[in-house]
Design a protein around this nucleic acid. Structure first.
Length: 119
DNA sequence: TTGCTGACCGACG
DNA sequence: CCGTCGGCCAGCA
């Protein structure tokens, strides 16, 4: 219970659920595709999360996609932004240090929707 | 309609 | 330790 997203938008498309979660990511925090997928109930559906993000680009949504990285804390999707530096620049603007396209102290900035939203 | 691909993750050898 | 494969779901040719 107490899953505002699942309950409120469970009838929506998987993509829309992803967008909702991404929007909930606090400033200066990051999460992984698997975390979002797991929160939505499909731990194996991490690929769909990435796919949703790709569609979000054409959605022209203001989703903080730069706050979503892979399990290794690597900016896997940086290539999909306007420019390669867009993702890193935005993260650094939020106080997140990046080295070699990888987030430093990833565990420290990691934001788990399961732990923050759901119980 | 069928089949391939994809900003991933975890297991197996 | 590293390479490979399967799985999940949706979009597109």
């Amino acid at each position: 219970m107490a899953d505002p997203i699942k309950i409120a938008d469970k009838n929506k498309d998987f993509f829309q659920l992803v967008y909702e979660v991404v929007k909930l990511i606090p400033h200066g925090r990051v999460t992984s595709y698997g975390a979002i997928a797991g929160y939505l109930g499909s731990k194996r559906g991490a690929r769909m999360v990435g796919w949703a993000m790709n569609n979000c680009l054409k959605h022209k949504s203001d989703l903080p996609a730069h706050r979503v990285v892979n399990r290794n804390g690597l900016l896997s999707g940086k290539s999909h932004f306007a420019t390669m530096d867009t993702m890193q620049d935005r993260l650094e603007a939020e106080g997140i240090k990046i080295k070699e396209n990888q987030i430093l102290e990833f565990d420290q900035h990691f934001w788990n929707p399961m732990k923050e939203i759901s119980f």
